[in-house]
Design a protein around this nucleic acid. Structure first.
Lengths: 343, 343
DNA sequence: TTGTACGCGTTATCAT
DNA sequence: ATGATAACGCGTACAA
């Protein structure tokens, strides 16, 4: 007959020891270092553990060992882009026997600080920091931070083990793709002004224009916030100009989608009237109509490699300080030669 | 090989006590129950804490208090849909002083079990379980589970505090919307066969057809997996029939998008040639071209209300056992009357 | 091979 | 108002 009674007090290692008339030490060893014991004893312990439903108390283990088996992954937002990085990190963590806890900051330095506080209270053995908002926020905490790996973008002026991509180079290539198609009036919708990622992508855009000898007046940047809505606003402003651009490079896919929506709304076509280039290769880039030309970042690998590196650090093994993964230009259906090439 | 900065021994409460020549008890009280102490003492302690960078060790607190201040939120996947529920849960948790840890199971009962193991080891004070895959998986663990609230869909045959929506009713209304537009040949793309959510939505679809007196041969279900790709496959199969449906009700937005893609690919138009109805009102439903008619679920509120309920349980306050939140039909641009209404 | 005893950092219960 | 001290559950020297 089943006993549905929920024990008021959780079973502890003492209960198991008493049940078997063994010492707690023996029970503990049977569970963590079975090699040291007689196989028969180990078996008896296992049986009793099963019977009593004993689970080691993680808090006590943590306190004793000074280690949690937990890694915090801190991302700016819950967008699909960062989630894919998180997935990679999670995979690598699991392979190493770590659990991951995701924290998202909504691009708020304060929230970042909260997570830093938590980990400095001993809640995690390590941290994966994905594209921190403010370099300063982290500096104040650095002293107390457990081993930390920075992902996606180096923290300015700080030395952390890093796994990243070359945003500037990737943006250069994206812009250059438009130039090679014959475009000259190429606008850029930027990300948030303070985001290092956005800044570097902008630099790549400007560098490509310069390299092609395009006068600065012809290209131009309009501000966005990495959201669809901000892409719409930016594109509307571009289309209201006397000489609208023939191509637009958005600093991420979301804003590119926003741009396309506005272009279509005005009765113009993509790419026949305006070419649009995205960045990130989020899933929506594949399924949108038309499918979006963009730059693929190895998001999963970024997370995966970073977590592997963190595992190396925690295991005191060797690792590369700065790893740069490569990006890929993906031409789909939103970029084409301009109808009336202007020289 | 670079050397990570070795974190020095963390400051403990003893260090603070020694610094001030006070007892650890006083320091502890100054931090947790300032009212019991002389304001001057409290101030001195606060200053020393700041100076030494002391942080209470959470593992030790946890061990002593038998409480973690953590709630696990377990979701089947990292889709935007579940993330929005998670957001709501997080907000309510934060308001109650709890931290949340998200676990996703990839619809894998084993992974669900792993999280259950973790929480039964004392890693969390409570659990928010969003749409569990297998009722059985949870039964084995129920004995050891801390207070648990089920979100989105009741667990079959189990009694848990629940916050959910009426999937069947919502699907009924969605199907009825198509019927009222004049459609008769209405197909349904289902979710995974074992998903209770998918099953109930299907039931709503069938009930609506029956209520309208539509012969069962005219409507029909094709299987999907809640993914864009599966929606494409399902739609392709529907279009290859001698008498394709004039309207399709997909059990979620993703599959609806897949269906639209295939319809457009075949040179047909949405909604002129085929109407498409989604479910969930994910963000993509708003920005897709054309914007998707769908059913809005109060995702954020589901998570929020569920976490509030969990807080009540943990605080031993009263709460409603079963809460059902309402859904909203949203007509956008993918549903219209059929071109040639068939009687 | 197994048992004894201590300590991890904190809070609560007594004292004073 | 403050101090001394006993737990909390576990792992591990050290003993046996």
């Amino acid at each position: 007959m089943p006993r549905p009674s929920q024990p008021l007090r959780p079973t502890t290692i003492k209960d198991v020891a008493r049940e078997l008339d063994l010492s707690v030490a023996t029970v503990s060893r049977a569970l963590t270092k079975p090699k040291l014991l007689r196989p028969e004893t180990v078996a008896r312990v296992r049986a009793a553990v099963e019977k009593l439903g004993y689970r080691p108390n993680l808090a006590a283990q943590n306190l004793k060992l000074g280690t949690t088996g937990i890694v915090y992954v801190i991302v700016p937002s819950l967008s699909p882009f960062f989630l894919e990085i998180f997935r990679g990190a999670e995979r690598a963590a699991q392979e190493g026997g770590y659990s991951v806890v995701m924290g998202h900051t909504d691009r708020h330095p304060d929230r970042e600080g909260e997570f830093f506080d938590q980990v400095s209270c001993g809640r995690a053995d390590g941290v994966l920091l994905v594209s921190t908002a403010e370099a300063e926020a982290i500096v104040n905490h650095k002293r107390r931070l457990p081993p930390t790996v920075v992902v996606l973008e180096a923290v300015e002026g700080q030395i952390f083990p890093t796994v990243r991509v070359d945003h500037k180079k990737a943006a250069f290539e994206a812009t250059n793709h438009l130039i090679e198609l014959g475009h000259r009036r190429i606008a850029h919708i930027t990300g948030p002004a303070r985001s290092p990622m956005a800044i570097h992508r902008r630099e790549g855009y400007l560098a490509a224009l310069a390299a092609a000898g395009i006068r600065s007046g012809e290209g131009s940047c309009v501000p966005g916030e990495f959201t669809v809505a901000s892409g719409e606003v930016a594109m509307a402003s571009l289309l209201s100009r006397p000489k609208p651009p023939t191509a637009v490079f958005a600093a991420n896919d979301e804003m590119a989608i926003g741009a396309i929506r506005v272009i279509k709304d005005r009765g113009l076509r993509v790419p026949q009237d305006v070419s649009v280039m995205g960045f990130d290769d989020q899933r929506i880039a594949t399924i949108y109509d038309p499918p979006l030309s963009t730059v693929r970042l190895p998001t999963f690998d970024l997370g995966y490699s970073a977590m592997v590196k963190l595992r190396c650090i925690l295991a005191k093994e060797s690792y590369e300080m700065d790893v740069v993964l490569s990006t890929t230009l993906i031409q789909r259906a939103t970029t084409a030669a301009p109808r009336i090439p202007d020289a």
